[in-house]
Amino acid sequence: MELLISFSLLANLIVTSNAEDRIDPVLRLPFFNSKTMKSCSTKKDFRYLSKQEKKRISDAIGAKEIPGLYPVYNSYCDKKTRSTYLLNDIVRSEYQTLLISFQDDKIVHFEVVRFDEPVKYKAPSKWYKLFLGKDKFETIDAISGATLTRASTLKLAKLAHQLEKKKNEKK
């Protein structure tokens, strides 16, 4: 019997220690370790979209079809909550990954985490700041010589916005 108890406790220990050891690489990004975010406690969660929600959001962002599952990082900072999304899209032939963070339904951080297209297609960093505080993106300036970068970035911003809206609908 003692042996059985020991096994159970050992298994329990393994489960717990595995969970602690598995640090999400996303949380190692500079954004999550910045001054603003350092005091926050961040937990990964997922947004699940139903068929109808997928259809509605696809239509809203002008995409043919979108996946139904998105990770979201919820950060609890003092009395404020932030939701942060990491979203991928193909610009022309290669991917870009954006980190988009919301607080009080507004974009408070917008960052290109990865950009695999040639650097000439990347927008100047100032351009990405145009997304801060916005919930409509159509009027955001064009980027000369990088139309596809703008289109992809706008699509991801709209998607993040829709996912954030869904969170609020849940409330």
């Binding site: 019997m1 059985l4 108890i5 159970s8 406790l9 298994a11 329990n12 489960v15």
Partner: peptide, 14 residues
């Protein structure tokens, strides 16, 4: 007590 301990531990796992 033993049964309780086993149950507690196994519920955590399974």
């Amino acid at each position: 007590i033993l049964s309780l301990l086993i149950m507690l531990a196994s519920t955590q796992v399974w």
